[in-house]
Amino acid sequence: MRLVRPGDMVVFVLAAGLVGASYAYFWGPRAEGDTAVISVGHRPVAEISLLEDATVPVEGLIGDSVLQVEGGRIRFIDSPCPGRYCIHMGWIDRTGEVAACLPNGVVVEIRGGHREFDAINL
């Protein structure tokens, strides 16, 4: 008696297809947000549109962070923090995505469009 029969392979292929489809469906292209809310500490200080390209300085707790808006995306291009994690985060453009410079207390969150997550736990 063979362990795997022809029908088993069919079921396996269907199941694998279903898994692939679930990745495409649930993790596929997400809605792009159209504004970014900038907070310092817990206080929102500005809400800026992502439709206009701009360079925005933000006064934080230990100095000025500089944000760049381009083509519907936003990123940190400078910040007075030691690790520069905020800059390495790179561009964010999906609703709910967050880039933060914790030493400087500056947090940028994308708003608008269809919100998919309110927390991402990695």
């Binding site: 362990l3 795997v4 029969r5 029908g7 088993d8 079921v11 199941a15």
Partner: peptide
Amino acid sequence: IVGSLGRYLVGAVGLSLAAAF
């Protein structure tokens, strides 16, 4: 349901996969 398709066609692996899903 899957088991009624025919025992010689779909074996334990197919049944188990279908049940797991």
